[in-house]
Design a protein around this nucleic acid. Structure first.
Lengths: 258, 258
DNA sequence: TACCGCCGGTTCAAATAATAAACCGATCAA
DNA sequence: TTGATCGGTTTATTATTTGAACCGGCGGTA
């Protein structure tokens, strides 16, 4: 692992529930040496990616991020394009919808919409990275990702988030093959307990998925009928996003022959 | 310069007018070896900070940035706090107002408002970094920054953006001393020609400025009277921002004794 | 006051990772 | 065919990163 990756990984520890992180915390989180972590932190700080609270000496995300995200959205407004589609789908199916983009070996959620129509709701945290192996979005991506990414995930360590998380490579491979046939991934209670979700990949201008769109349903409402009614709108919404990104489905994808 | 800094500097080349950059462009922009640049790009891409267009092979900013900026704004909403103040001030004085945050040795603009009330307007690009030595915001920051930063800037290479940019360290030092006495920095035609601006520092919880607020006026309207009417509202707005950031002026600042 | 553990931060020899010249293959134009 | 340009790769050399030990400040406590 290169130095750059080590430094960037430090940033991934920040989330809504973890807005400030001290040197000692980073050392525990990473298992790396204090001096190493400190050097990385200082260098990130010098470039504006972190700033340090002058009294607590804890680190938080810096202003550099704000500028770059403005540049990205101004020039390549994925978030703005995806937003209305996610909203509409969420109203349509009356359930939590979220879109995420592939970021290395994880998914980075970029937008979600929750119609709050029912008593029971699926909770969703926009600022935590999602694993590929334990989410329907992840399976949808893996089904059409490069062999390289797929084998890296399947051969790597896979966290069991619940007692129903599939961590057996062969079982996962079967699920992924199924997803490749249908274009739609399903998972139940694999990441959050009591939540069933269905996901499908979205594509950019290449043959590889850039992310996924998924609908999550509380288990109490996850009847086969209800899940079936979701599929059509979900697939249509993903198609809309793919089109507005200027993307095309790869030949092996079932939706490439509509 | 460390490897991390070298990699992060690559990201700073992106702006609204430069959304996609190829390997060769980066080589020219940085003057570094192709292999070096390529390794950095790959590592940034693996972590989601860049993505590569599959057909043109050019690089663009990736989704990692979107997630982190959401985290920062959710937990430390500088931008959201500053926005209304900038707007109000801009309406008040009828001129372009912008706020920027200190990011390393430069200023990162995070918000601007333009009342578009006059025929002649100051143009402003939100996505380019600003130099400390050639802007009123920069002088306002330098007046209260650490000795370390100040000497680094004054002893470093300073670009002359116009023929009126002050690049002589002693003259600059005098301007900075003046700013420290009054709490307000002025500059004319130093960065953009035909633009005069006044700026003042904003503070966080430490004794050092976190950024600056400034008003820019086209030279044709930059009469002493007009500039004088701007000062009061500008200083009040900066005070509002500093307060809402939980900040305090350092003892040597004239506004610490209101 | 003295002692203790814990915090953020620093030092410098040793180990490791970054670098850059040369190279590869593809594409395009003359 | 040639050659110019593009993105990308290889590998010996070189410079940077690493981490054990250390420093000094802080808060609690005996």
């Amino acid at each position: 692992m290169g130095t750059i990756t080590k430094a960037l990984e430090l940033l991934d520890f920040f989330s809504k529930s973890r807005a400030e992180i001290g040197l000692g915390d980073f050392v525990k989180l990473t298992g790396r040496d204090k001096a190493t972590v400190h050097r990385h932190l200082v260098e990130l700080m010098q470039n504006g990616w972190l700033e340090q609270d002058p009294t607590t000496r804890a680190y938080r995300l810096g202003p550099a991020i704000l500028r770059l995200s403005a540049v990205r959205e101004a020039t390549y407004p994925t978030r703005a394009l995806i937003r209305p589609v996610v909203h509409r789908l969420s109203e349509d199916v009356g359930e939590l919808v979220h879109a995420s983009l592939l970021q290395g070996d994880q998914l980075s959620p970029i937008y979600f919409a929750d119609p709050r129509r029912h008593g029971v709701q699926v909770h969703f945290n926009l600022s935590e990275l999602l694993p590929l192996h334990a989410t329907s979005s992840g399976l949808a991506v893996l089904a059409f990702s490069s062999d390289d990414l797929r084998t890296r995930i399947l051969n790597g360590a896979m966290t069991a988030y619940t007692d129903q998380t599939v961590t057996d490579p062969d079982t996962l491979r079967a699920l992924i093959d199924e997803t490749r046939r249908t274009g739609l991934a399903s998972s139940a209670n694999a990441f959050d307990p009591e939540v069933a979700s269905q996901g499908t990949a979205i594509f950019g201008s290449g043959d590889r998925p850039v992310g996924a769109l998924s609908v999550s349903v509380p288990s109490v409402r996850a009847t086969p009928d209800h899940l079936a009614t979701i599929r059509g709108p979900l697939i249509q919404a993903a198609r809309d996003i793919t089109r507005s990104l200027g993307g095309t489905y790869p030949p092996e994808h079932p939706l490439s022959r509509p």
